[in-house]
C-alpha cells in the first residue's frame, strides 16, 4: 500500500509535467509552425470575398439546390451541411429509411438532369457522405449535371464542361485516392464567369 501511495504522488507530479509539455508546449509549437508556414490552411481554407466576408471553406460542402448550380452530395450533418455537427446517416444496408431516401433521390436526379427512366445514377449522387460535408462529387456526377447548369445559365455546355475539368482534382500525386470535383469552388467560378442575369 505504501508503494501505491508513493506512486500516486509520482503520478500527480508527472501528470502535471506532461500537461505542460504535451498539452501546452506541443500544440503551441505546432500552432506557431502552422501559422507561419501554411496560414490559409491552418485557418480553415476559407473562401472570402474582396471585402473580407467569409462565404465558406474550400474543404466543406454547403447547400446548393437550384438548377444553376452544381449540387453537392446529400448531407446528414445536423439539419444538412451543418459544419458544427458533422456525420453520416449511419443507416445500414437493409434500412427501409435509407432505401426510401435513395429511391426518391434517384428519381429526383433523373428528372432534374433529363436522364432516361432506367439510366444508372452515380452512387455518390444519391447517397449521403460520411462527414455530411464532402466537398466533392465524382467526375461522372459532375458530367451529368453540366447540361442542366449550362441551360439554366444560358451558356454552351462545352463552356461549363471546361470549367468542370478545371476544377477536377485528380488523384494525389497521380496515385492516391480518387478523382473528384470541388462543388463550392466550381459554383463560385461559374458565378464569376457566367453570372445569371437577374
Amino acid at each position: 500500500m505504501k508503494t501505491f501511495l508513493t506512486e500516486i504522488k509520482t503520478s500527480v507530479l508527472i501528470t502535471l509535467v506532461f500537461a505542460v509539455l504535451l498539452c501546452g508546449a506541443y500544440p503551441l509549437a505546432v500552432w506557431a509552425g502552422a501559422q507561419l508556414l501554411f496560414p490559409a490552411k491552418a485557418n480553415g481554407s476559407l473562401v472570402t470575398e474582396a471585402d473580407g466576408t467569409v462565404r465558406g471553406s474550400a474543404l466543406l460542402a454547403q447547400s446548393f439546390t437550384t438548377d444553376k448550380y452544381f449540387q453537392p452530395r446529400a448531407s446528414a450533418a445536423g439539419t444538412g451541411y451543418d459544419a458544427s455537427s458533422s456525420g453520416g446517416t449511419n443507416l445500414g444496408p437493409t434500412s427501409q429509411k435509407l432505401n426510401d431516401s435513395i429511391k426518391a433521390a434517384v428519381a429526383a436526379y433523373r428528372t432534374a438532369n433529363g436522364l432516361a427512366a432506367d439510366a444508372p445514377v452515380p452512387a455518390d449522387a444519391v447517397t449521403s457522405s460520411g462527414s455530411g460535408l464532402d466537398p466533392q462529387i465524382s467526375v461522372a456526377n459532375a458530367g451529368l449535371q453540366a447540361a442542366r447548369v449550362a441551360k439554366a445559365r444560358n451558356v454552351p455546355v462545352e463552356k461549363v464542361q471546361e470549367l468542370v475539368a478545371a476544377h477536377t482534382a485528380g488523384r494525389d500525386l497521380g496515385i492516391f485516392g480518387e478523382a473528384g470535383v470541388n462543388v463550392l469552388m466550381l459554383n463560385v467560378a461559374l458565378d464569376q464567369q457566367y453570372p445569371v442575369k437577374k
Partner: peptide
C-alpha cells in the same frame, strides 16, 4: 448493395453511403 442497385444506383460505383468521394 443489390437493393440499392435495383433502385438505379450504378453498380460499378459500389456502396458509397457514408463514404467520401476523395477516398472512394
Amino acid at each position: 448493395n443489390p437493393i440499392h442497385q435495383k433502385l438505379g444506383v450504378a453498380a460499378a460505383d459500389g456502396n458509397m453511403e457514408g463514404k467520401e468521394v476523395r477516398f472512394g
